[in-house]
């Protein structure tokens, strides 16, 4: 018997549960495990890092969501929380750290600076958004975002992970990059004479076209 309608599948599952039979998929278990034990990279850039530490502290207790194991090494981390202003001098290191993380890996940009440069956008040494070089999964606005906002971002990421498929149902139906393309390496920008070269990675970042009425 093949059930393709997810609603029908859900109905059957609850019917069976009433009879004491629990049915699930490998994918669900696998994603549940992955999303409930995200190991972030211990990587503080600026002010937002302090709020990140507070989130891991006793009051907000990130451990409730299984993400309290901050790893100092990128090789052991699943999640990079870009917590603070990324300067041009720091940008190559951020990209390199991202490249060193094993797939599947995720990025949360925490705060206005990491999203777009924030209040320091006019600075000559400030990268105007880390998404110019690496793909970002969840953005948190705020300067700095409150710990609750970081927890919300984490829950959003968990939902995103749970929705990913690990096994192709049909040809080409794979939403998890790790199983799709293998390890992704992004080119590391170089520090040039006046600016970083290149100023953004055209494969990752597509600048908004300017829209002006006049």
């Amino acid at each position: 018997m093949e059930i393709s309608d997810p609603q029908e599948m859900e109905g059957l599952r609850s019917e069976l549960q009433k009879a004491g039979v629990f049915v699930t998929t490998m994918e669900f278990i696998y994603n549940w495990g992955r999303s409930s034990s995200i190991w972030p990279l211990q990587f503080g850039l600026a002010c937002c890092a302090i709020e990140m530490i507070c989130t891991a502290g006793a009051r907000f207790d990130l451990a409730r969501f299984g993400a309290e194991v901050f790893r100092p090494s990128p090789r052991q981390a699943d999640l990079m929380i870009v917590s603070g202003t990324v300067t041009k001098k720091m940008a190559p290191q951020v990209v390199r750290l991202y490249n060193q993380m094993p797939e599947p890996k995720y990025v949360i940009t925490m705060g206005a600076c990491a999203i777009s440069g924030g209040p320091f956008k006019q600075g000559y040494n400030v990268l105007k958004g880390v998404d110019r070089f690496i793909p970002v999964d969840v953005h948190i606005p705020g300067c700095p975002p409150r710990p609750e906002a970081l927890i919300h971002a984490l829950v959003t990421l968990q939902k995103k992970i749970s929705a990913q498929t690990t096994l192709p149902r049909e040809q080409g139906d794979v939403s998890n990059r790790a199983y799709d393309k293998g390890d992704q390496h992004y080119p590391v920008p170089q520090l040039g004479a006046h600016d970083i070269v290149p100023p953004f990675n055209p494969e990752v970042w597509h600048p908004e076209p300017v829209r002006r009425d006049s």
Binding site: S116, N125, K128, G192
Partner: peptide
């Protein structure tokens, strides 16, 4: 000390020209 070694300009001078890395603003 603050900028990288290959950097050529002196950004706090009054006539410093910033690199053109404008970011979209609505």
């Amino acid at each position: 000390i603050l900028m990288w070694d290959d950097f050529e300009d002196h950004p706090m001078r009054k006539d410093y020209q910033e690199p053109d890395d404008y970011h979209y603003e609505p």
